[in-house]
Amino acid sequence: MKNISVTLRVWRQAGPGQPGRFVDYPARDLNPAMSFLEMLDVVNDELTLKGEEPIAFAHDCREGICGTCSLVINGKPHGPRQGVASCQTYVRSFEDGQVITVEPYRLRPFPVVKDLVTDRSAFDKIQQAGGFITVRAGSAPNANAIPVPKDDAELAMDAAQCIGCGACAAACKNASAMLFVAARVSHLGLMPQGQAERDRRVLAMVQTADGLGFGSCTNQYECSAACPKLISHDFIARLNRDFIKASFKAAFRSEPNRVVGD
């Protein structure tokens, strides 16, 4: 394959809440085997040498697992290919002479920090609300004490693969975090260990996501199509079911008689 040249139309924004704009940068003579982020590295070094400030973009592992990278390339989170993160997008997916738009995620719960970097701490807050099983270190029963049917464990693993990149919410026209919440709720809800807190978890996580300003799900499944791990929107159905069930159960459960300690 021959080397190609493209024009990058990149969103530049100096800081949170500041006005931003698109700036065109030429990227010339690119090896098709280069990753998209490596192309940005090269452009950044050129900018540095020209005395301009390089483009800030989030990245870390560069193998599609840490979930740090978060580019919207030509209108699609993580770029043209399905089932890969931005860092696994390669120059060979583009054509010579193409103009490539690169912008940050655009949703209120993920404000822009600078250029292409957004603040995704909202996802951490959702996890803190209930995305866990309460086990103190040292108090766990023997690992094989509770068998877990293989199919449940496999399905839980499908959900647990979520890398927390936020592409689902970014792809959603409603900026909904449902796929992210659903993945966590389903993973823990499918494990026998997660049952004790199942209702509490789903109610708390959904309410927290709502409170953080994420939108609602309109069942268009852009999220699962944009997900670099291709996590299925089936888990959103499961989340809905769990939430409704938990709401009904909370409404009809009898209150325990709380005895004040002696």
Binding site: A143, N144, A153, Q193
Partner: peptide, 22 residues
């Protein structure tokens, strides 16, 4: 030995055999 117990209790979806054991 304790690590595996702890991780299973935390809901880590380790690979399982058909019988449900690790």
């Amino acid at each position: 030995v304790n690590i595996i117990d702890q991780c299973v209790a935390l809901g880590v979806p380790f690979a399982r055999e058909y019988g449900g054991l690790l």
